[in-house]
Amino acid sequence: MSNPLHALLGTRSQRLAEPLPSRRTRLAWYPVLFVLGALVALCGCFVQALWSPVGLLLALAGNLAVFYGGLRLTGTKLGAGFPILGWLLVLMVLMAPRPEGDFVLASGANSYVYLVGGLATWLVCVLPTRSTFPLGIPRQRD
């Protein structure tokens, strides 16, 4: 009996054997991943509050998809790092109080689970990479 995750994502040895994309391709993906991380944060803030508790799971699944997708697209930890930067930037803005006293991401159990869960999904995604270098970027002589 085969594992359905292996059919979807491949085995660890298959993922590690994949070649890294070219430097030019990786550099093109990083800004796109930053914007995707920001969009997922913006959408996640509203979805987790609107459709609790299913919305919270949907928002965390969106985080996981963007972080893991960035890792797989680039093969580097920076591929998961750029989305978390966009995600955190948007969340910091949305957590700041407005002069009217309104919050987009107010204090509450769902909001805290979304924040901690989003960071946990990023941490799960950033641990494995195909490269043995600290940032996942091998030195290339172009």
Rank of each mutant, 00 (worst) to 15 (best):
L39F: 08
L73Q: 05
Q48V: 10
V90G: 04
L94S: 10
G108I: 09
G70R: 01
Y114S: 08
W29F: 12
R130S: 04
A80D: 02
L91E: 09
V116W: 14
A61S: 12
G70L: 02
V66T: 01
V104T: 10
L33D: 01
L89I: 04
R98Q: 15
V40R: 03
C125Y: 01
V32E: 00
V47N: 01
F133V: 15
G81W: 10
M95R: 15
V47P: 05
L88K: 12
N110I: 14
Q48R: 11
W122V: 05
L60V: 05
N110K: 12
V116T: 14
S52W: 15
F133Q: 15
A59G: 07
V35Y: 06
V40W: 08
T132N: 12
L91F: 12
L27P: 00
A59T: 00
A61T: 06
I84C: 04
Y114M: 13
Y112R: 14
G44E: 03
V32N: 01
L56D: 07
G118Q: 06
C43M: 13
R72S: 13
A61Q: 02
T74V: 02
S131V: 10
T74K: 01
A96D: 10
P134L: 11
G37E: 02
G86Q: 02
G117R: 08
L27M: 14
V113Y: 08
Y114P: 09
G62L: 13
G44I: 09
R72G: 04
Q48G: 11
G37V: 07
L64H: 06
F46S: 12
D102N: 11
A120T: 14
G62Y: 01
P83C: 06
L73E: 07
M95F: 14
C125I: 06
L135A: 07
N110E: 15
V126W: 00
T129C: 07
L85M: 11
L71D: 01
G81D: 09
V124Q: 11
C43D: 11
G70D: 02
L123C: 09
G37T: 07
A120I: 11
L88P: 08
V32I: 09
G55R: 07
P53F: 03
F133I: 03
L78A: 15
A109M: 15
